[in-house]
Design a protein around this nucleic acid. Structure first.
Lengths: 233, 233
DNA sequence: GGCCTTGTTGTGCAAGTGTATAAATAGCTT
DNA sequence: AAGCTATTTATACACTTGCACAACAAGGCC
């Protein structure tokens, strides 16, 4: 009779369990920060007991590192996916890329919380720092590639240093707007951030605003004034 | 003889002690994150014993909140200080503002680590979220004010919604570059980030690039091409 | 069915946590 | 010099933490 009644359990495949544990870790960190993400909390969320974690990970630190790596991969992968449209014009692809990065699901409070929590430790933890840098540089390279295509399509030649500067600036625009959207999404109407971002990116590249059929004179006048000032200076 | 030899101590003024404890808290968080910032660690750093903290703060949470408030105040204050130059032209002031935000001491790994650590908890902690929002909106209002001055000096009229969009975009540019500089300062040559930022901001506002005495034709040609495209579109 | 491997649970432990509170003493007041 | 008071130390406590390990049972294999 009242045998200690051990908890029933199922044996899951290794890959599945590891992924569940990583997901539970990310959930815990997003909700309660690194301090609130204890092995017991994580295990509870994953539907297992704490001891099991040690069977898949050498220690807590390794679990957190794998969780962060997973997060970075997921973020960059999602972001780059927006560049996949092969057929569209470079300019349209760039706009789609910016737009995708400034809407759900990339604009997301949970992901931002995770990003900030981990990145805050980057200056103290070389492993985190490197994981970030790789993700960042990969992202920037993608940006630089599209920018090069856009400028080529506009038949404009720029030096490589200028290209790099464009990529850095555009990356900053996207990052900055991403943060604002994640932290205070309700302050912006739907699509507003994307519109701001696209306009800012195109301004950075010196692209002529697309003709607005409503009032085409505006941009024409603006351009004339620009040219005039150029002559006089 | 061997009396238990209690530790010697000095009585400091309340203001001084509170400030020391807050500074020790910020140091601890910057170095080891929220998880590593225990009362004992903080007290050790401040040169007191842990029990004393309870004499100045109701609990750990309140100490952390005051520390974060202090941090935000310090950051926004420093940033706004760059706008103080009353005599310069609006455009020069804007450039100086951008430049100040993209150089030391505002570009600083420790401050960034603190910012990220705390902001990562903002979506879960309403108090942190509000502290951030107030600081952010204050900053953006400053940006918007300078932008308005700059555009007025250029005799350009823009709607208030457009003004807001400019401020949001410029804010994003500064934030994004600030992050890049804090996380990977050594990837940029001195002044490079500021140069990128100023150019991006001026492009956002549609300001004509300042005439480069070395090769003035370049920008003139560029402007002519811009104007031409405007005519044809 | 019975066995074996190993994924999984449960318990134990030392170290560390925030909080509470008693004891001591620094420095002002008189 | 003596006394007071409030700052500061020190200790206690209940609780959590990461980690180690022994016991167990799930599910494949023969």
């Amino acid at each position: 009779m009242n045998a200690p009644s051990r908890r029933k359990f199922r044996r899951e495949g290794e890959e599945r369990r590891r992924q569940d544990l990583i997901e539970a870790t990310l959930d815990s960190v997003a909700e309660h920060g690194l301090q609130g993400a204890s092995l017991r909390t994580i295990a509870l969320r994953a539907g297992v007991t704490a001891g099991l974690i040690r069977h898949y990970f050498p220690g807590k630190e390794e679990l957190l590192q794998e969780a962060y790596t997973t997060l970075v991969e997921r973020m960059t992968e999602q972001a780059k996916a927006a560049l996949a449209m092969e057929d569209a014009s470079p300019r349209k692809r760039l706009a789609a890329f910016v737009s995708a990065n400034l809407n759900a699901p990339i604009i997301d409070a949970r992901v931002f919380s995770l990003w900030a929590t981990f990145i805050g430790r980057a200056s103290a933890d070389p492993a985190l720092a490197q994981a970030h840098r790789e993700g960042y540089l990969g992202f920037r390279d993608e940006v630089e590639a599209v920018v090069a295509e856009v400028l080529a399509a506009e038949q404009r030649k720029v030096e490589t240093s200028q290209l790099r500067h464009h990529a850095i600036a555009i990356n900053a625009i996207i990052d900055g707007l991403w943060i604002e959207g994640c932290l205070a999404g309700e302050m912006f109407s739907p699509g507003e951030l994307a519109a701001i971002g696209i306009r800012a990116v195109e301004a950075e590249l010196g692209l002529v605003p697309e003709q607005d059929p409503e009032k085409p004179q505006t941009s024409r006048r603006k351009l004339m004034r620009l040219a005039q000032k150029g002559e006089s200076g």
